[in-house]
Nucleic acid binder design. Sequence first.
DNA 1: TGGTTCACG
DNA 2: GACGTACGTGAACCAG
Length: 929
Amino acid sequence: MASNHLYLVDGSGYIFRAYHRLPPLTNRHGVPAGAVYGFTTMLWKLVNDLHKADGPTHLAVILDASSRTFRNEMYDGYKANRPPPPEDLIPQFPLIRVATRAFSVPCIETEGLEADDIIACYVEAAQAAGWATTIVSSDKDLMQLVRPGVDMLDTMANKRIGREEVIEKWGVPPEQLGDVLALMGDSVDNVPGVPGIGPKTAAQLIQQYGDVETVLASVEEIRKPKLKQSLIDHAANARMSRELVRLKCDAPLPEPLDDLALKGLPPEPLRAFLEDQGFKSLLLKVDGGGNDYRPPAAALPPVTAPATARPAAPEAAEQPAFDHAAYETVVTEEALDRWIAAAIAAGAVAVDTETDDIDCIRAELVGISLSVDPGRACYIPIGHRGDGLLSEVPPQLPRALVLERLRTVLEHPGVLKIGQNLKYDLIMFRRNGIDVAPYDDTMLLSYDLDAGLRGHGMDELSVAHFGHAPIAFKDVCGTGKSQISFDKVQLDRATAYAAEDADVTLRLWRKLKPRLAREEATRVYELVDRPLVPVVAEMEMAGIRVDREELARLSGEFATRIAVLEGEIHALAGGPFTIGSPKQLGEVLFDRLGLKGGRKGKSGVYSTDVNEMERLAEDGVEIATKVLDWRQLSKLKSTYTDALQAQINPASGRVHTSFSLAVAQTGRLSSTDPNLQNIPIRTDIGRRIRDAFVADKGYVLLSADYSQIELRLAAHMADVPQLKAAFADGQDIHALTAQELFGEVNRDTRGRAKTINFSILYGISAFGLAGRLGVDRAEAQAMINRYFDRFPGIRDYIAETLTAVRDKGYVTTLFGRKTHLPGIRSAKQGERQAAERQAINAPIQGTSADIIKRAMARMGPALNAAGLEQVRMLLQVHDELVFELPPEDVDAASAVIRAVMAGAAEPAVRLSVPLGVEIGTGQSWGAAH
DNA sequence: TGGTTCACG
DNA sequence: GACGTACGTGAACCAG
């Protein structure tokens, strides 16, 4: 039949393009479906063109079946550079197949072949049968197939692509396009091509010589020396590239041509699909039978409409109430499999783990909860033991069985796992051999949207977004002495608590995820925070070794010295008292001994802080000196040498901190249990504690820190030419400032300049600076004025930042991280001024945090690519990373670490100052500095 | 639980 | 003229 016309839809190509062109919408289930929606409207339109002139009589959707194909056999690097698809596109892949089936259109994919190759095979077959063919795609590789009777259709641009259009775009006809593409290469697919040759040069060469082989054979004729040399050097790559871009058109057809016949719209399956997805405008067309195609954007389901646009947000109206009785306790294989199937069908599932300990390094899994729809959640107990008195061990599915079944979902690339503080759950699953991916974290979503407005714990988020307080942990497990671990909680209580957490998490995701793009937080979430989760999880699991004996020795030594000091202090005071009590100490010093000092603070107690004590000590007050020593030693002993010994994990013999990803207002990490970001270093005695942090046997520690990163960023952000030039030349920045401010550089002026430089980062005040420098306010103000005159960029930066924050209520880092500062509109002057100082500091401190986070996320892959698999990243201390590695890897690892850290802003942000990195190594952390 | 102090960047 | 006084953290301790 001469009138047959086959349409081949490049499904994979289509959804990638649709994803980037359409807004990030979600379907009725809260699963991202913007690309699916675009795809569905496109199919609808194609199918409606049945039997129109040039419309399809036969139609198939072609998909990529797997990532490895025959091209990988040819060239291992093929598509190796390709980044993984965006998280919210992943759940849409399976939906594409469902949509296609709903139209009763064949969906074709073949293992080992790319969609392009399958399309090429069908083009050949259709040509042989005398059919016309249209390829629905705008992919440049597919343009090679254009010929009489074969054209392409770009549905987004609504444009036909024939031979003329190919020549116009590429300068060569379709049959020569493969040679042009081979010379150009393709950085996305990692087709190497020939360096220095882009589309223009490639077209010119092919126009002149006809194909790649002839170009290579005629290389002596080429005039441009660089081009000639590049062709000689990369001839092998050119030949391989030619083969990589050649489409394979001789594979057997997965479905015979005749089976692709289009039968028209089958309303029922399609109707079911559209209803399920909530694509209401298309549903209306199915019912009305009309085919009045309109662009998709206006016609979307209300699920993701901005909450601010409609006071009664549809999503809120649709929210079922929280109902603990509706949650299911899963204790049969049938139920488990049913939930797993539901998760896969939904493409997104909220997951939460329950354990017997808040420390996820020590904890054992007790149960897992899942939610796939608001109000629909389950709890799968696997480690409940009863309380040993009143309750027996409840019947549960075997732990190993549950974990193996759950693995299919947790590792399923098509199912998005949603967690609240997912780092915890990631560690629990990793310790059970399961790698969770892909994932989203509602805590981080909230952090990247609302930092400064609220905390990001689940209970607080649930109250803020749903007005619902979930069951509190302490209501289930109690608190203090009578607290029980979760494995002793009765199953019905456990289910209500755990399933509710998963339910809340899913609802939070549906509420927060769509805000990301609207509020321009996608960049910081995707480029900075989300990638960090598994990286930090690895660091926490790695831990760091500490020398217990050394700590114990220090504790003993400190105890002796503290006891001696205590005796001396009591003697000087004329009687025993509690030195650690600021109240008692103040009374002893200022009332009993009559030393001068004033009341301070709302509570009416004397201030006895370092400044006050040092003032006294300088006046020769002996007791003050001894109190200062006593305090330092007490602090070191109680906070470090004693506490750290207790924190050593018996199983690993190491200390495993927990890094909080969503606490600091500025984007920094923080460290708890124990805090390893405040280990002493500033005093000699304190530094001895750092020496107790040691490398494992056969390893060394390496410390890499950014030098003056915040000042460098300030120089960049405020655009200060002298400071930028000084950093570029590696000059002493405080000396330069001293020269600018005081006209001469010596110890004193350099020290003052350093203080002023730092005060700028913190949002300077004359009073504060005066206090630090020991000068009067007028003098401090004069220095500030002089600083602004020498570096007017700083004054402008501060002025612009304050204008912006008063207008918007937040400030941003170079990567777009927001810190909200509601205090900027406070009626209280003090609060306003505090917010102003934060506004000056947060973009600088936050950009620094963004940069080191990016370095951390890239470090693992970079080290692996260099064959340095034994190098482990252990700690982050704001501008420093600590690694443990075999001594023979030090040189190679240093180079990689330095390169990754120095280049961490790029390419998203280009800095006008270099980032300096200082590296040291040693057996201990102290020695590595 | 809040206030104070002090360890770090 | 009064106000409050440098940014960001976490832990230990005391006292109520």
